[in-house]
Structures are given as C-alpha cells and as structure tokens.
Design a protein around this nucleic acid. Sequence first.
DNA 1: AACGCGGGGCC
DNA 2: GGCCCAGCGTT
Length: 383
Amino acid sequence: MLDLKEYGIDMWPKEKVQAFRKALLDWYDANKRDLPWRRTRDPYAIWVSEIMLQQTRVDTVIPYYERFLHHLPTIADLAKAPEEVILKLWEGLGYYSRVRNMQQAAQQMVDDFAGQFPTTHAEISSLKGIGPYTAGAISSIAFNLPEPAVDGNVMRVLSRLFEVDYDIGLPTNRKIFQAMMEILIDPDRPGDFNQALMDLGSDIESPVNPRPQDSPVKDFSAAYLNGTMDKYPIKAPKKKPVPVAYQGFIIRNKDNQFLLEKNNEAGLLSGFWSFPLLEKGAVVDKQVSLFEVAEEVVQLDIRQSFTEYYDMAVDWQKQEFDTVQHIFSHRKWQIELVEGVAETTKLLGTKELKWVSVEDFPIYPFAKPQQKMWEAYVKKMEQ
DNA sequence: AACGCGGGGCC
DNA sequence: GGCCCAGCGTT
C-alpha cells in the first residue's frame, strides 16, 4: 500500500472522510444528471457508455449510445457484427480502436464467459480495451464493487482537495490518486461516489471557468481554503500537432462513379474509406509555404505519382477547391484537392479500391477529413 | 515513459 | 488559434 505521507498528502481522519462522503453523495442525489446509462443496470449498456465517454463529452455521446444499443442490443450482436457496421455506428466519435477493442472483448465474453458480462474486477480488467479507469467504473456502477475509477475529472478534483503537487498528466502519478480513492470511496455506494466525483469535476470543478464557491465540498478543499485554486491541478503543456500536407484526388469515371480506397488495417483511421491521398514531399504550413514555382513542380510531380501508383491515366481538371484542414490530437492535415476524370473503369486487384456512385456513399464509413473533402468538392461543383 | 490514436466545445 | 476532455494499447 502506497504511503501518501511520502507524497506530502495528509489524508483525513475517518470522521472527516465520512462527512465528505455524505456531503458529496447528498449533493449527487439532489443534482445528478438524468443520463440514459443511469437508467439501466445492464453491464453491457454501462460498458458501451463508458467506452464512448473516453475522451468524449456527454452531449456528444448520448445519440451515439442510443443508436449503438438499438442496432447491437446484446454482447452476442456486437461479437458477430461486420466491421463496416461497427465503424458506421462509431463514425464521427473518433478513437476508432475503441470499438474494435469492444468487439474483441465481446468475442472474449462469448468464448470465455458464456456470453455473459464478467462480474469480478479481475475478469472485467482482462477484457480488451478495458483499462484501470473503465474497469473501476464498470465494477462500481454495474456491480456495486468498491473499486475506484480514476479519470481526469477525479484527479483534478482530488488535486485541489489535497493540493497534490504531482503532475496529473504523468501516468506514474496515477497511483497516488488511486491510493487516495481507496480510502475515500464510499463502500456502500461506490458507483454513485465515483459518478458524483466525475459530475463535480465536469461541471463545478471544470478545467476552465470552475465555480469552486458552488462546490458542495468546498469546506474540504485545501486549495479553496488556502486560495491556491489557480495552481491545481499540476499539468504539463501538451505538444502541438505536426503539420502534414497531402494532395487529395477526387477521381471520377465515365459512369460518374468516384474512386475510393480503404485504409490499411494499421494506423490512423484504419478500415475507413477515403478519396486517394498522397503526402506531399515537402511540409507546407502557413508559416513555411513553398515558393509558387516550387508549388507548381510539386503539383505536376504528385499527379505523375498518382498515375504511377494507381496505374491509371487521368484527365486533370482545372477546377480549384478550398483547402481542407483537419486537426487531430497529434497531426494537422492540410489537403489540396484536384479533380480528375479517369479514362478507364478497371482497377488493379491488388489494392482495396472501388468505384462508388454518390448514392452508395452512406454505406461506407467516412472519417471527418474525408467528409470535409467531399463537402469542399460539392461546394465548388454547385457554384 | 512516450507515443499513437479523433473529434468537438469553449474561450 | 489554443485550450480542454468519463483512456487504452503498443513499444
């Protein structure tokens, strides 16, 4: 057991811990949000909600949650769903490995747990895509087990309550908050206790514009009482996304179908379909833009590359399109579009390429950058 | 321990 | 434009 004193944290005496639990849970009982996953005890549904809520806001999740459970109401349904179906259900949520891992976990449950959701913390933790936070959340919420669920909200709230001088962004420091929670958590209502801390952290104790004076536990908060709220939580700044320049190819054939390519199984947006993209040799950011002459050379060069790579002769159109920009957490894509008319409708068998008519687009999973590419194309064509 | 992995809301 | 977020798996 980790000694909190070594980290400069004076844990409260038992009476104060009990008073804190009561203050927090009384507030939760009076103020908790009415969310769809709080109306069920089905561990499968609670699991779906917890995975969707990873790095994703409540308001964004709600419609996805309803639709997902409507189409895949049971573990068995998820285990046997085709890839395109699960990607379409997750389309727009991001971090798509979440849903792939969920399907693997569903298959684990079919194989190892007779198709039932496992009921112990160790078994739940053994499922693909379920890490320490999610294991604690499901254990406590669905099975009433006294397991902490330490997420960003909880670390922010606790770091203010106890003036924790350790960076909440460093994985190694998670154990400090885990140890604190093992003492604080209400053994009778662990799920409500965890959710109360998260509700508190996402609203009143939010990262920006917090309202600490409205907190039901402000009298317990060392940072509030000492006037050090601005200092906590300690968190190192993040790195900026790296700019990457692409040429995007909107290629049409004489049957008015468009060329789509399926992304590789590994890497960013795997399994999604895209208009062909080739990375430009040089980085073109706003600040380090190439000279105009060089830009022309790059254009000619990359169209030649397309012809070779896709083994397809193309009649390039003069039309110019808006540049598409999309920012991921770690990459900043800038996509210049060009339109071409292919002189053939045949395709090599080696790549995952298809000619697709516009009315069939809804069948294919498209991530946000590809949606933006199509919007830019349509916008110009309608002018 | 660091990195890869989306997307949207808010200021 | 920059900040934030109900994290996990891989290396």
